[in-house]
């Protein structure tokens, strides 16, 4: 049994220790905000924060996590209040199909923590998540708005 620190809570998960964090979140813990897109750390749909670092959870075996702090999209709003990044996403009406947006928001969270006022080049470098609907322009605008918030 793995004891995980997710969104500030201690959570038990009885799974094969090699199971990727993504599938523990989704199938074992019912936290489906984190998405499966490729399974090979290419698309970023499964991005979560581990100790604040944007990490593709499809490539993180559960036995490698230890007691590091995991933050998922479900952990961003507090008491039903959107955080500034989510609020910027709403302001720019970013999502289209929305499937990639949890990962986008998590990647943006890590970016803004590291660089509170990112340049376009910083955004290009950090935001490597794939969006097939093509929301990149709105994602960029929302990150700049969140930076100013």
């Amino acid at each position: 049994m793995a004891v995980l620190n997710i969104n500030g809570k201690s959570v038990n998960a009885t799974v094969d220790p090699r199971t990727p964090l993504l599938w523990v979140l989704r199938d074992t813990l019912g936290m489906t905000g984190t998405k499966y897109g490729c399974g090979i750390a290419q698309c970023g749909a499964c991005t979560v924060l581990i100790d604040g670092m944007a990490t593709r959870s499809c490539q993180v075996a559960i036995n490698s996590v230890g007691n590091r702090k995991i933050t998922t999209i479900e952990g961003l709003s507090v008491d039903g209040k959107l955080n500034k990044i989510q609020a910027a996403w709403v302001e720019h009406d970013v999502p289209q199909c929305g499937y990639c947006q949890s990962g986008m928001i998590m990647a943006a969270t890590a970016l803004l923590a590291a660089k509170p006022n990112p340049t376009d080049a910083d955004i290009d470098a950090a935001m490597t998540n794939i969006c097939r609907c093509g929301t990149y322009q709105q994602v960029r605008e929302a990150i700049h708005t969140a930076a100013k918030a």
């Binding site: 936290m31 489906t32 905000g33 984190t34 998405k35 499966y36 998922t72 999209i73 479900e74 961003l76 709003s77 959107l82 989510q86 996403w89 709403v90 009406d93 970013v94 999502p95 929305g98 499937y99 947006q101 949890s102 928001i105």
Partner: peptide, 14 residues
């Protein structure tokens, strides 16, 4: 349908 999609609460088929 934006709010659900920025909070991870939107349920997709998967």
């Amino acid at each position: 349908d934006t709010l659900e999609k920025v909070t991870g609460t939107q349920i997709y088929g998967i």
